[in-house]
Amino acid sequence: MVRRSPDASDCALVCEAIDAHLSGLGPADQRAAFEAHIARCPACRDELELAAVIRCELSALPRLDAPPRVIEAVRRRVQGIAAEPPAVLTGHSTDRRRRARVALAAAAAAAFAVAAVVILGGRFPRTSHHASAVEIAHATAEARFAFSLVADATATANHELRQGVLRQRVVATALRGISRAIVAHPRSSSVQRSHPTPIIAHGGSS
């Protein structure tokens, strides 16, 4: 995979293999070649250190610690999803809308049930201190929906944070690639310096 003399193509291959290396993946001979390249290439060593830091930061984010009933609910959900055509996801906005519609449908069903209770009037025993099971179910769904919206907003922020970290890595990689190119091809250096707007990637979050 990696040739002995480090050049731009070696570095590109090593950069592509960093994630696999950090995960302990790949044949032993490729790992040995990777480590040999890292030992003699400071730029790739920096890339590896940066990737390790990012991996550490990402792993520090909240991890799943779900109770058994939640795992069981997910398992049931997975079985349900497997029976459906795969959804096309375009991002959090779409997901929020879909969830809102799902909740809307659930709330509508509950609303029908509540309406039925009202229409049927006194056939159902109820005092001023006791709500019916339908009302409680309806209110429970509403409360859970409200909390899920708060969680969704928080998840959006976490998503942006993760994307920001990944973007920083991409930007760092790109800039280092440019610096390598400048060292290898001095003429590129003058072109780069004369360019008023170098490559900039925006984090997108504030």
Binding site: D65, V70, V78, P86, A87, A151, D152, A155
Partner: peptide, 21 residues
């Protein structure tokens, strides 16, 4: 804690859906 658990469950669900897609 409640919001975090919902978030984690949602994250897991998204991951499952993306994986299945």
């Amino acid at each position: 804690s409640l919001i975090s658990n919902i978030d984690q469950l949602e994250g897991l669900r998204e991951g499952i859906e993306e994986g299945l897609a």
